[in-house]
Amino acid sequence: MRRNIMRLPDKRRWSYREVEERLVHVGRATPTVELGWIEAGERHVDVDDLVAFAAILGLTSGELLEPPAECETCHGAPPAAFMCMECETTALPARGA
């Protein structure tokens, strides 16, 4: 999810400042420094963030939770018991399985 949130604005060539301004317009002010923390995995993305990012990107929250279809690293199928660090797709066994 984190990668989608930061990858999609990048594909649109939006700067952190542009993302910040768009988030303000949808009621979720997020300073540019926090956007950097999100991208680096140093800040969690909560449900309110997810909804705001989906709104500025013209997507549903569910679409942001999906792994990128064009992952060039794992092609959507990492090896069993591993997680792709690029798209965060996991092939880890379910808990209790």
Rank of each mutant, 00 (worst) to 15 (best):
L35D: 07
A55K: 15
P67Y: 02
A69H: 12
R43Q: 06
G41D: 04
A52D: 02
H44P: 00
L59I: 00
I56Q: 03
G36Q: 05
R43A: 04
P67H: 10
E72Y: 08
E63I: 06
A69Y: 09
A40F: 01
L57N: 10
L35W: 11
E70K: 11
D49C: 06
V47K: 14
E42G: 03
V33R: 13
A52I: 01
A54W: 03
L64V: 08
D46N: 15
A55I: 05
F53I: 01
L57A: 09
L65I: 13
G62E: 14
L50K: 07
W37E: 13
E34A: 11
H44I: 04
D46C: 09
E72K: 14
S61K: 10
I56A: 07
T32Q: 15
V51I: 15
G36V: 02
G62Q: 11
L50H: 10
P67A: 14
E66D: 13
E39S: 11
D48A: 13
P67Q: 08
E70F: 10
D49T: 04
G62D: 14
I38N: 09
V47D: 14
L50R: 09
V33H: 11
L59W: 05
I38M: 14
D49F: 08
T32E: 12
G41I: 03
E42S: 05
E63G: 06
L64I: 08
A40H: 09
C71H: 01
T32D: 02
G58I: 00
V51R: 15
V33N: 09
V33Y: 09
L65W: 12
V51F: 09
L59E: 07
L65Q: 15
W37C: 03
V47W: 11
A54M: 04
A54G: 07
L57P: 13
L35M: 14
P68H: 00
D46G: 13
